[in-house]
């Protein structure tokens, strides 16, 4: 069974997690065209590669983002949505 690292609870078996779909940036509903909005809600590119995904650690109720290479099934990083790695770097330098 695969292991996944919850940013709060550490490395746990996959059976404790629920997949929440690919993370995608929502277009601004007020300014996007019907076409843009429809492609946001209906289309997934499904191409293998590094994806940001929502994962949920079920026993603790923790949503987080996993960056996963869907070709190799390798998880490169996991972090809270509110605390992406780039922010960490800024905080550290500040």
């Amino acid at each position: 069974m695969k292991l996944l690292k919850c940013p709060i609870n550490g490395t746990r078996p996959l059976s404790e997690f629920i997949f929440g779909g690919e993370w995608r940036d929502m277009p601004n509903p007020d300014t996007s065209s019907d076409l843009e909005w429809a492609s946001y809600v209906h289309y997934r590119d499904n191409a293998p590669g590094i994806k940001k995904e929502w994962w949920y650690h079920s026993p603790s109720g923790t949503w987080f983002i996993a960056e996963r290479n869907t070709l190799t099934d390798e998880v490169l990083a996991t972090y809270l949505y509110s605390n992406p790695p780039a922010t960490n770097v800024e905080e550290q330098s500040a």
């Binding site: 929502w54 949920y56 109720g61 949503w63 809270l80 949505y81 509110s82």
Partner: peptide, 19 residues
């Protein structure tokens, strides 16, 4: 409830959810 939790993270509102 899971969806509520996810939306709360994204919307960053001053709310606590208690199941």
């Amino acid at each position: 409830y899971r969806e509520m939790q996810r939306c709360l993270q994204v919307w960053k509102l001053n709310v606590t959810l208690i199941n």
